[in-house]
């Protein structure tokens, strides 16, 4: 297969990162500095990887790395008692910084294995590019391309054409905090300017308010309130989420649109000033609601109003746990 020749160098980078992850995991487990290592292994379906919890060094061989490694593994950290090693991408580690700031994870209980990230793929985009009626039997990803095989077809796609929307505008592909960085910074994609990420939000804000409302109403109408978005978000760790509370009952699951909207507004407010646009919520949504527009707008608001970017500074204070006297006041009577 000639098509694959061009990507061999890329494959090596992925291979090197994967090797690095395996070695770090094995070493940390052997020395006893961690109790468990959380990484990715191949999933049972093509184009899927799945989180894996490794406790003995020999099993480190199961760990994989590729642009299909999408889950934010930091999700699991608040639940662990012992010391954990974890693989993080640029966005993931920013959620971890927030978890540390919010006292959900203690810095000395986590060994961070950072990956200089090239971006991950978006399965919706792959589906669109491929045509939804085709069943993928096997998939192989290299640094630059994705090879898909199914009944009677063989397709190669450029990773950058099916990149997750968050990755396209990612500002910090190299983890801002780590104990070990596998590979080196030059293996990551280039960080984008914040304004690039806010373009879509700014354009949307130009629409008439009623048009904005109808857009969201139409999107959110499709929500089945499965709460997978919350489940996938590393920052949604509340032992009892407001949607599950019975008294007071904030959100009902059978009341229709208005309750769905309230859920979405509530969730967005809860991640305001914390969300790092990792995109996990959007990828988790089974009906493909564009959750990013709302969270991204809050991110922009945090920047515009308070000059705050979330998840960068382990010595900082969460946005809503502090204030400045000169914070915006002009909206108050």
């Amino acid at each position: 297969m000639n098509k694959m020749a061009g990507s061999s160098m890329g494959e090596d980078t992925i291979g090197a990162i994967q090797e690095g992850i395996r070695n770090s995991a094995a070493r940390m487990l052997e020395s006893g500095e961690i109790d468990v290592f959380i990484g990715y292994e191949d999933g049972t379906l093509p184009l899927r990887t799945t989180p894996v919890f490794i406790t003995c060094p020999e099993d480190a061989e199961r760990l994989v790395w590729s642009p299909i490694c999408e889950n934010s593994l930091t999700c699991y950290l608040p639940k662990f008692q012992g010391t954990v090693g974890v693989v993080v991408k640029g966005c993931d580690v920013r959620t971890l910084v927030n978890l540390i700031l919010e006292n959900q994870v203690s810095r000395d209980k986590v060994k961070i294995v950072g990956v200089p990230c090239k971006g991950i793929i978006d399965r919706d985009r792959v589906g669109k590019a491929l045509g939804t009626d085709r069943i993928i039997r096997s998939a192989k990803a290299t640094r630059r391309s994705l090879m898909l095989e199914g009944d009677g077809f063989e397709v190669e796609m450029e990773i950058q054409d099916v990149l997750a929307p968050s990755c396209e505008v990612c500002r910090y592909p190299v983890p801002v905090l780590f104990d070990v960085l596998v590979g080196n910074e030059s293996m990551a994609r280039d960080g984008k300017d914040p304004e690039a990420g806010y373009l879509e939000v700014a354009q949307f804000a130009e629409l008439e308010p009623d048009a904005r409302f109808s857009f969201f109403a139409q999107e959110i109408e499709r929500c089945i309130q499965c709460y997978a978005c919350r489940q996938a978000c590393p920052l949604c760790y509340c032992p009892e989420c407001f949607v599950d509370r019975q008294s007071p009952k904030w959100i009902s699951r059978w009341r229709g649109l208005s309750d769905k909207i309230l859920f979405h507004l509530g969730r967005v407010l809860h991640v305001a000033g914390r969300c790092v646009d990792c995109g996990a919520c959007r990828r988790a949504c089974p009906v493909g609601i564009d959750l990013r527009l709302l969270t991204k707008n809050m991110e922009k608001a945090a920047k515009d109003l308070f000059d705050y970017e979330s998840g960068l500074d382990i010595g900082g204070v969460p946005l809503l746990a502090t204030y400045r006297r000169e914070d915006p006041d002009d909206f108050i009577l």
Binding site: V201, F204, A205, E208, P209, D210, A211, R212, F213, S214, F215, F216, L265, V268, L269, A272, G273, L294, N297, M298, A301, A302, L305, F306, L319, L320, A321, T322, Y323, R325, D327, P328, D329, F331, I332
Partner: peptide, 19 residues
């Protein structure tokens, strides 16, 4: 002061949402 931050964000969210 803490409320002011939350309200500023709520204000922004509602406006963006078209309410």
């Amino acid at each position: 002061y803490l409320a002011r931050r939350k309200f500023a964000l709520l204000d922004e969210l509602l406006d963006f949402y078209g309410i």
